[in-house]
Nucleic acid binder design. Structure first.
Length: 293
DNA sequence: CCTAGAACCTGCGAGC
DNA sequence: TGCTCGCAGGTTCTAG
């Protein structure tokens, strides 16, 4: 499941293999893969052809390739199963190939968007003066962004009446964190996923953010090794970081800190993994805090 | 306005 | 063997 580190690995791959190449033709093989491009697949293909792609950028789980001669960018989101692959023309067509991008040069490779579950997609958008595609203006900076506003994040946590894992997954507060790294950072912080955000002190927020950054950087360091010359490895499922996970997927296995069996709880149509001893449930779950003095 | 929960989608593995 | 069902989950939409 691609979260920030996996998307960053893809961005680096695109920087090396796709940046500064000129699009010759685009083939859209599944309409859902361009559903964010409201004018449709044909329009997407036509407007991309003939343009040179710039250096890929990323915010959270979104990445985009600016067009070098206009104020537009190709926006990509991998959803849960999306892959951006650089393949030789002659490579067999993947079962779930959704979009193919051919280039004018003679390098012999093309860019493929492959996506089994079709939650991801590509689209073309105008960019704001700071280079951000306009449709992701609501996405917060991610914790690896030097301009991430930690103080504003903490104030938002204090203001909201929600729980800490919900907040970590709220891309308008902090971007790039998904279910896996949320559970990892919470385990490292010894915080239960249902801890009300309004109870977090400033040092606790700082500690939590530190763990979010640490676990993402650790995954990123490992992810960098898993890609070879013709293949932009985006497959979150193959899981090079799997062996380093302390919480996610470890139901009934001993906590790596205290040995207590880890637990899994259904949570928002997915799962939360945690240590019942290191991460005790908050005493007042869901009790509304007094709003005015 | 704010928050919680459902819907979207497909393949895989477990259980019968 | 072949079927059903639960599960995986990021984002967006809707209901309350």
């Amino acid at each position: 499941m691609p979260e920030l580190p996996e998307v960053e690995v893809v961005r680096r791959g695109l920087t090396r293999w796709v940046a500064h190449r000129t699009v010759a033709a685009v083939e859209v093989l599944h309409p859902r893969a361009v559903r964010r491009h409201l004018a449709g697949g044909e329009n997407f293909a036509q407007r991309l052809a003939g343009h040179r792609l710039g250096a890929p950028a990323r915010r959270g789980k979104y990445l985009w390739l600016p067009l070098e001669d206009t104020d537009e960018a190709v926006l990509a989101h991998l959803g849960m199963s999306g892959q951006l692959l650089v393949q030789p023309h002659e490579a067999p067509t993947e079962k779930h190939l959704r979009i193919r991008v051919r280039f004018e040069d003679a390098l012999g490779t093309e860019l493929r968007f492959v996506d089994q579950r079709t939650f991801g997609g590509l689209s073309l958008h105008d960019t704001t003066p700071d280079g951000l595609p306009d449709v992701i203006a609501h996405i917060a900076r991610d914790p690896l962004d030097p301009l991430f506003d930690e103080e504003a994040f903490h104030r938002a946590l204090r203001r909201k009446r929600t729980t800490v894992k919900r907040a970590l997954l709220d891309q308008s507060l902090i971007s790039g964190v998904g279910n896996i790294y949320a559970d990892e950072a919470l385990w490292r912080s010894r915080l239960h996923y249902e801890r009300p955000t309004a109870t977090l002190t400033r040092p606790r927020t700082t500690e939590l953010l530190g763990h979010v950054r640490d676990v993402m950087n650790a995954a990123l360091a490992v992810g960098g090794t898993s890609f070879d010359s013709l293949y932009v490895n985006v497959n979150g499922e193959s899981g090079y970081f799997d062996r380093s996970l302390d919480a996610y997927g470890r139901e009934d296995l001993p906590c790596r800190r205290c040995g207590t069996p880890m637990r899994r709880r259904p949570w928002m149509n997915r799962s939360s993994y945690f240590c019942p001893k290191c991460q005790p449930a908050p005493r007042v779950t869901g009790a509304p805090a007094p709003k005015s003095p």
